[in-house]
């Protein structure tokens, strides 16, 4: 078996200490160890953005980060966005604008958008295009995604 290392981190607001295998990706750790399956795997080589999570507030492709790098850091996944049955404003505007179809890229899209709004509360189309250019949506909901993010920025 692979060597394991003990890591301590914050996941969606809760402190945790777990063992992570050396070489395991953060994506695999999130899905297979933390059982948070909202984060999706699309390419595993950092090209599609489906596995985007927030690591210390910054959006990262979790397939390109090792699980052991989580030690001492704060991780936010899509599951943290709605609280007590109340949706995050981005989740609501994604629904209002029908900004997804199959929904597979949606968790990553919303996480990238969340990071953008933290950084730029009133993003322009260009800001949105730049911030989300690493999140692919084959269903082509881009026009609705732009509208949803702009709408959320107003709320």
């Amino acid at each position: 078996m692979s060597e394991k290392i003990t890591i301590s981190f914050t996941i969606n607001g809760d402190k945790e200490t777990r063992e992570a295998a050396v070489g395991q990706t953060l994506l695999s750790f999130i899905r297979d160890e933390l059982h948070l399956t909202g984060t999706k795997s699309g390419c595993e080589i950092g090209e599609c953005g489906a596995c985007t999570v927030l690591l210390n507030g910054k959006p990262v492709n979790s397939c390109l980060v090792l699980a052991v790098e989580l030690d001492g850091k704060e991780l936010v996944t899509i599951e943290a966005l709605s609280k007590n049955g109340k949706l995050d404003k981005l989740q609501q505007t994604f629904i209002d604008h029908a900004a997804f179809q199959c929904g597979y890229c949606t968790p990553g899209m919303i996480i990238s958008a969340k990071a953008l709004l933290e950084r730029k509360p009133n993003p322009s189309d260009e800001d949105i295009n730049e911030a989300l250019s690493g999140n692919l949506c084959r269903c082509g909901a881009y026009q609705e995604i732009r509208a949803a993010i702009k709408d959320a920025a107003k709320k």
Binding site: K40, E79, T106
Partner: peptide, 11 residues
Amino acid sequence: AIEKVTGSAEF
């Protein structure tokens, strides 16, 4: 809709 924006939609 809600399942898909919250990551609870099961693929």
